[in-house]
Computed example of a mutant assay.
Amino acid sequence: MIEIKELQLKEDIIGAFPIMNELRSHLDVQSYMELVQEAMEKDMYHMVALYENGEIVAVIGYKPMITLYYGRFIWVCDLVTKEDKRSKGFGEELLSFVENWAKDNKYQAIALSSGLQRTEAHRFYEEKMAYDKVSYVFKKLL
């Protein structure tokens, strides 16, 4: 049985850590919780999990934004499926959930970035989900 649920309770967010840690391996539980809670409070960050038979197998994090370039849009911050559960449509389910949320809330687009090395993810976004590659993302540590 598949269930999709927004995570708001601390114990649910902590329960998603092992899956999110597959994508964000630089985080420990404490820094993860601090960042998620601050992002939820200050940045309208949403975290949604897909459960298979009561177990979290995929997680997506997103936030509504407004910029002059995109207008009103959703930025997908995180999307990860548990390694042994990949290629079963769970990422597609979660990204479609966010697309529907965006439409229902009158957002015009969805954007995300994906690491240069993640060629399988790029194929998923472009071929399976019909996303266009429109830019490079640049980063500078301060």
Rank of each mutant, 00 (worst) to 15 (best):
K106C: 05
M40W: 08
N53E: 14
G89I: 08
M33I: 00
E120N: 15
E93C: 04
E55K: 13
Y107C: 09
M65E: 05
W101R: 03
H46A: 06
Y62Q: 01
A58R: 11
I19W: 12
I2N: 09
Y70S: 07
E127C: 07
L68H: 08
P18H: 08
G54T: 10
K63E: 15
V76I: 15
E52V: 06
K85A: 12
F73Y: 12
K42R: 11
M40E: 15
Q37H: 10
W101F: 09
L23H: 12
E93R: 05
E83N: 08
A102I: 08
S113Q: 14
S87K: 09
D12L: 04
C77N: 15
I2W: 03
E34Y: 01
P64N: 06
Y69V: 04
K106A: 07
I110N: 07
Y45Q: 06
L7E: 08
F124S: 09
A111E: 12
L7V: 06
V29S: 00
G54Q: 03
K10M: 02
E34R: 03
R123T: 15
K82T: 09
G91Q: 02
H46Y: 10
R123V: 13
G71E: 12
A102M: 09
V80D: 01
G91P: 07
A102K: 06
E38Q: 15
Y69D: 03
R118H: 03
E41P: 02
S87Q: 12
E92K: 14
E38A: 14
E83T: 08
M20R: 12
Q108I: 10
S31H: 00
I110G: 07
L112Y: 03
K82I: 02
G61C: 02
R72G: 09
Y69K: 05
L9S: 13
G115M: 10
R118S: 12
V29P: 00
T67E: 14
G115S: 12
Y125R: 11
I14V: 13
G61P: 15
Y32Q: 00
Y45H: 15
E52G: 04
H122W: 14
L50P: 06
R123G: 04
I56F: 10
Q37G: 00
G61T: 04
A109S: 15
I13K: 05
M65T: 05
V57I: 09
